[in-house]
């Protein structure tokens, strides 16, 4: 029983962070129909930046570093959209072009990190140390804080999307781009903002996950693949779907790690992906439509 509860907590907190990360991928796809292959590399870049702020260059507390990173990453995301994505939009084959460009950009970031920080893995200090006893169940404070923070971020995003004017505009763009233009929404700004928010979400996930997983130049691809499986499982572009899928898969992963071994996680994720593609390619809540 005790072990089951521990698996449950670790699965939930893992799922919550995956949700934060995958929402970024989903949000960008939802508004702009762009599959950002650089999402994982942006996550890693954010992790390196956090490391610079907390250990490599300055010695800020992790929480403060996170606050510094939010605006920086938002501008970074907006910059990527402006410089890499926007010039491709007018082209007839923009879909292929944006995939190639974001993939190329991912390699630029990876190799930039490699050149700047070297191939050896580094680690990020956790937000909090120690453990927390909830009756018979002992969990690390870090995973409790992670769970709370991730849930807060997801909730904040939901509130923003449903209750703010700009958030509604973002949803409008994802449902009907021309319709959005017809009511006066500047679609370009929505695209840029969704990239900015997506980069911030990647950064939050990076700060929460990096104490557990190490930071290395190619370390972004595993979380990217997981985010992709979550997004496919939940339905490409559906935020609600991502929410459910992330928690389900987070729990599945926790069970796999506890019962089999950590090296089985990626094959299991892959198996889930295959099954979803074969059985329900639209995902839990996804809908087709361009």
């Amino acid at each position: 029983m005790q072990q089951v509860l521990e698996i449950l907590v670790s699965g939930l907190s893992q799922g919550a962070v995956y949700c934060v990360f995958a929402l970024g991928l989903s949000l960008v796809y939802g508004t702009s129909r762009i599959l950002n292959f650089a999402h994982g590399s942006m996550y890693m870049t954010a992790a390196y930046l956090a490391w610079l702020l907390t250990a490599g260059w300055l010695t800020l507390p992790v929480g403060v570093a996170l606050l510094v990173l939010v605006p920086v990453l938002f501008l970074f995301g907006v910059g990527v959209e402006r410089l890499v994505i926007r010039p491709l939009r007018p082209h007839a084959n923009w879909k292929t072009a944006t995939m190639m460009a974001t993939l190329g950009f991912a390699f630029v970031l990876d190799n930039l990190n490699l050149v700047l920080f070297g191939p050896t893995s580094i680690t990020l200090a956790p937000l909090v140390e120690g453990t927390l006893a909830l009756g018979p169940v002992v969990i690390s404070r870090q995973s409790a804080v992670t769970l709370v923070l991730a849930v807060l971020v997801v909730a904040a995003l939901q509130v923003f999307l449903t209750h703010s004017a700009f958030g509604r505009a973002m949803r409008a763009v994802s449902q009907d781009m021309t319709g959005a233009e017809m009511v006066g929404i500047r679609v370009g700004r929505v695209y840029a903002a969704s990239f900015g928010i997506s980069a911030v979400l990647a950064g939050v996930a990076a700060v929460l996950l990096s104490p557990v997983y190490l930071i290395s130049p190619l370390g972004g691809w595993a979380p990217f693949l997981k985010a992709f499986v979550i997004v496919v499982f939940g339905g490409l572009g559906s935020t609600q779907g991502v929410l459910y899928a992330a928690f389900i898969l987070g729990l599945v992963e926790a069970v796999v790690v506890a019962e089999l071994s950590a090296s089985w996680t990626m094959p299991i994720w892959f198996l889930v992906l295959l099954t979803v593609l074969m059985v329900r390619p639209r995902g839990l809540l996804g809908s087709w439509g361009d």
């Binding site: 509604r168 505009a169 949803r171 409008a172 449902q175 009907d176 021309t178 319709g179 959005a180 017809m182 009511v183 929404i185």
Partner: peptide
């Protein structure tokens, strides 16, 4: 009509 299909009638009007 380019309406926002997944939003309510009122949300559509307010987006106008």
């Amino acid at each position: 009509r380019h309406l926002f299909a997944q939003m309510t009638v009122r949300e559509n009007l307010m987006l106008g």
